[in-house]
Design a protein around this nucleic acid. Sequence first.
DNA 1: TTCTTCATCTCGAAA
DNA 2: TTTCGAGGTGAAGAA
Lengths: 247, 247
Amino acid sequence: VTVSNDDPGDAVRSLVAPAPGAARDVVAGALERGDLLAVVGRCTVAFDGRASGELGPGERHLLVKPDGTALVHGDDGQRPRAWVGPGGDVSASVVAGDLRVRATGDGGDDSLTVAFEALVHVGAFDVTDDGERTVAGTEADLRERVLADPDLVEPGFTPLATERETPAGPVDVYGEDREGRAVVVELKRRRAGPDAVGQLERYVEALERDLHIEAVVRGILVAPSATDRARELLAERGLAFASVDPT
Amino acid sequence: VTVSNDDPGDAVRSLVAPAPGAARDVVAGALERGDLLAVVGRCTVAFDGRASGELGPGERHLLVKPDGTALVHGDDGQRPRAWVGPGGDVSASVVAGDLRVRATGDGGDDSLTVAFEALVHVGAFDVTDDGERTVAGTEADLRERVLADPDLVEPGFTPLATERETPAGPVDVYGEDREGRAVVVELKRRRAGPDAVGQLERYVEALERDLHIEAVVRGILVAPSATDRARELLAERGLAFASVDPT
DNA sequence: TTCTTCATCTCGAAA
DNA sequence: TTTCGAGGTGAAGAA
């Protein structure tokens, strides 16, 4: 077992195949300093809270962030096998010769316990991420596109408001058609399914009641495409569809 | 810059503050062997595909799994700041003196590029996670509970089928009430919102049409609780609610 | 706080 | 492959 550290300003602590006690010390120090903590090894995991469950023995990667978030990743997939959210407490101990890391969620209702029966690596890193994040191709971009060129929705369509409030919640785009009829537009950045139609329908009905007029409120689903079931539902409800890409 | 490795059967390679070339070699070896790869350092990130975007300079943790999944984690929150799914290719290179890791998603439509301008740690780990995952408190558990004690839904309720097919999709639980009327039950393991009511409504309407009878099909939403808006919608649609916890 | 909806949602199962 | 709904969904914005 060797401690391997080039000591670049105490920014890193890295142990390969450490003894549990040495690992616990590194983990405890990382938690105290607010470091990013990474532990790789064979472990079992238990969690409890909104639901409860466990992971049988397996080799995994535990990531603990300065805000208390803890993620247990297996060897595949994009989602952690187990996790607990930020805001809680994290502690480390050695129980029966095993390193044990325990984290609790914000309310304290959620808890996560990781017991390592073999340690491959422990690392503590003093990192801060203050970089900006930009994303293009979101629903917001689709909305901008529709507002810039309302004919994409339907020739003669005139947007009047975004996020217009109704008893059923805010509608993405509210406007009127060439004949002056009220129009509710629901935007989806991806292929739309039955849920999107249900949403649109709720807004249309809510707005009809809100305006308490006899005139019909039209509903238009705007998305790159829609599934067959979604199109059937649109037809049944007398709603329309317009194909528009978010980019 | 030191290579620090206790050589526990070639299961670990760990470099603290490595030079880009040395890091590239470790990364390339990890990709070749199918190791779990972890890189910590200051980087910029760009992604493209379903959407596109970038992360400005920041210190982050890159995790690459044997299946090609790549996750870029910042110092807080539970979701990666950027990612690409499994199934694609991953490659490493040194460009303008910086380690660069590029990963593509399954279809090759998605791509993720991470350029490290400073390296804190590089680790390659030979791990496999074959542990079982068990979870209690899921919707399946709620269904079992309801089937074991149908009175939780409503006194006199009799379940007849689960996953019963309708033109709108499979119904969680199908049965009949004390008067022999058809009943559709929609289950939610947590507090139910408007979307759950929309789902239940679709199933009720689909089943009414499917049975093509004059008799009404009843709908009951079963969940620990429901939001006010959800309750209003239930009332408008003539649907019922039953409070049942998944555990 | 609760509520509502978006997400580069992810994931699994079924048609 | 596509569709559909669950998820211990998470996260953001508004009331």
